[in-house]
Design a protein around this nucleic acid. Structure first.
Lengths: 151, 151
DNA sequence: GTAAATGCAAAGGTTTTGCACGTTA
DNA sequence: TAACGTGCAAAACCTTTGCATTTAC
């Protein structure tokens, strides 16, 4: 699918910085911070100010093309929404070192999400657009460490 | 259960500000920001600096007595962990107005969580301590609004 | 040509840190 | 009394805003 078409559908102008931000997100598999995105955009030969990156991300989020996460490291992290070449996934967050591991949602999880969506939207009159499931804990390395020293 | 005992078990001193922070969280059902906690503590007659509140919250988090959330409104929000008089729950976050609705996790969800915990800990050697399930979307009010104006 | 987007610098807001002073054990 | 905890002020950070300039349509 074509990002430019998306911008036009939303009556927004198709600009080089905007396309560069989307391209950077498409290139990366990770959860990028605003500043990381700006660096990626610059590395790709398109100078862009951090302000523009933030404004573009806010727009992309409203267009539901991008999802914002906060994993607890003090900055927001962004990735393309499902369907934009990414398969839906959930996260394992290590609370000690901050590592975020993605895993592809299991069938059971997806079935549950679909059912929850129905129940919750009826019960709370809530229109569900997406969800974020994070399991928080310790990765293998940090777990060993914390067994030795008491955090 | 007694907070003071917890502090002692962790070889930390039992101080008035620390006890006041725990008490404030016990009194409130909501997700409090650091500053809200400081105000609650002061209202209860115990003056406390914001710095101390932050440091106490960081300690309580390490002791797994408190859980930190980031719902996207720019500040971290804290609540007591499960088992400290709170029943486990999940969240509905309105992306337009920021309202956070809690709902008590359904049986199916809890069963899934238990199973996931097993699968993921084996597959990724990850020690799961907790999880955060957020459904993101629009509350009834914002949904109506967005139907009229295109965001 | 005109409204929208950009980029810089500055402001805004939350969270952290340095350091002298109080407290707990 | 010897660490440990506290609180203030200042710093550090990420993010947003104001405004003159540039750009897309």
């Amino acid at each position: 699918m074509d990002p430019a078409a998306y911008f036009r559908r939303w009556r927004r102008r198709v600009t080089r910085p905007r396309l560069a931000v989307v391209a950077a997100l498409e290139r990366s598999a990770a959860h990028l911070s605003a500043d990381e995105i700006r660096r990626a955009v610059r590395a790709a030969g398109e100078p862009a100010g951090l302000t523009t990156v933030y404004r573009t991300l806010a727009l992309l989020e409203r267009m539901q093309l991008v999802v914002r996460h906060e994993f607890g490291d003090g900055e927001c992290r962004y990735e393309l929404a499902d369907g934009w070449h990414k398969v839906h996934h959930h996260h394992l967050v290590c609370s000690a070192c901050g590592t975020v591991t993605e895993y592809r949602a299991f069938k059971e999880e997806n079935a549950l999400v679909a059912r929850m969506q129905e129940v919750l939207s009826r019960k709370y009159r809530f229109t569900i657009r997406g969800h974020q499931f994070n399991f928080v804990g310790l990765c293998a390395r940090c777990c060993e460490r914390s067994a030795r020293i008491h955090l």
